Computed example of a mutant assay.
Amino acid sequence: MKLNLNIQPLSTWLNTGKEPLVIAGPCSAETEDQLVATAHLLAKTGKVSALRAGIWKPRTRPGEFEGIGSIGLEWLKRAKEETGLPTAIEVATGKHVEEALKSGVDILWVGARSTVNPFTVQEIADALQGVDVPVMVKNPVNPDLSLWIGALERINRAGITKLAAIHRGFSSFGNTTFRNEPMWDLAISLKTHAPELPIINDPSHITGNRDLIGYVAQKAFDLDMQGVMIESHIDPAVAWTDAKQQVTPAALADIIDNITLRKPDVKSAEVSDKLAELRAKIDKIDDLVIQKVAERMNIAEQIGQYKKDNDITILQVNRWEEILQKRIPYANALKLSAEFTEKLLELVHAESIRRQAEILNAGQEQPAEKLSHV
């Protein structure tokens, strides 16, 4: 389902002539000297489109540094005057919006902790009524596409047409490579719902590790995202917040220099014909995959009928373990990852269980439910 968003192209409100689009600056504005000096170094690289800085910082636990506050807006104004860089900050309340606009901030963004709360988003949207300012909306902390879309819609309905999304990854339980799992499929799904919506990637918050920023940024551009927001500090080692994910302006320039930009459209007839040929092959294979899955489901229904006739339970845990033990090594040999294979098998197996449950409980009214990997 396509979203009905009334938005302007990114080039109409952040057209700096620089490619790729880079929004950069310190996680937190700490002191006036720190912010202004960082801004000058970023501007000197010639690669930064806008200067970002955290003025109000919503922290996970009380007692942590929660931003310098309104005084930082004056520092940001000075940095803008001296470098010519447009400025961008996060706002979390209606009052933040009012103060930011009064101080001449060029771009606002709604943070992940705010996006997760429709009441907060609506308060921000109400404060934006009648204002012509670019607004970017980060994905919510948890992987909920509807919340992300809802926040974008609320801001858009307030009359904001200079709108973009920021993909900063999602919280997940346990230790992983990333601070926030990218879950690229959710960002892709958002793009499918709103093809005209610009999406900016935030590799700093996804990785939590400066060494991985270039890798994630490259993947974001490969997925046709329109830009990146990267945290940069004049001396990351002494940063007051998120030191591990910030880079120096010089390191930022190196990251951008090593980005390969690829075109989303195909202009060469020869390349277009080759892609069409390969996609035709994929279409044929997809048809076969669907056909084979349908055949498998027919057999699963026969098994369901047999279980019903012989009073056998639907779930056979040993059988599920047997499937995984046999199929994952086979898939690995065919260069398919274990994670992908297990997810695919879970989907197929869950559908088999659902169909068998319908057969065993035919004639009985059943509540709607989702079956997990059984």
Rank of each mutant, 00 (worst) to 15 (best):
M1Q: 03
L3I: 09
N4Y: 00
N6W: 00
L14P: 02
K18A: 07
E19C: 02
A29E: 00
L42N: 07
K47G: 01
S49W: 14
S49K: 14
R52D: 01
T60K: 03
R61W: 00
G67C: 15
I68P: 02
G69Y: 09
A79N: 00
T87I: 05
A88H: 13
I89L: 04
V91L: 02
A92M: 14
K95Q: 13
S103D: 06
D106W: 09
I107S: 13
V110Q: 08
A112E: 06
N117T: 14
V121D: 08
D126F: 13
L128P: 09
Q129A: 10
P140Y: 06
P140F: 05
S146W: 04
A151G: 06
R154F: 14
I155W: 10
R157C: 01
A165W: 00
R168H: 01
F170I: 09
S171K: 08
S172I: 12
T176G: 07
T177F: 10
M183F: 14
D185E: 06
S189M: 11
I200F: 11
L223G: 03
M229I: 13
E231W: 00
E231R: 08
I234V: 15
T241F: 03
D242E: 03
P249N: 10
D254G: 08
I256V: 06
D257T: 07
V266C: 14
A269L: 04
E270L: 13
S272L: 13
S272V: 01
K274H: 13
K292I: 12
G304I: 00
Q305P: 00
V317A: 13
V317T: 13
E322T: 12
L324N: 03
P329D: 04
Y330T: 14
A333S: 15
L334N: 10
E339V: 11
T341Y: 05
E346Q: 05
H349S: 12
K370V: 06
S372T: 10
H373Q: 12
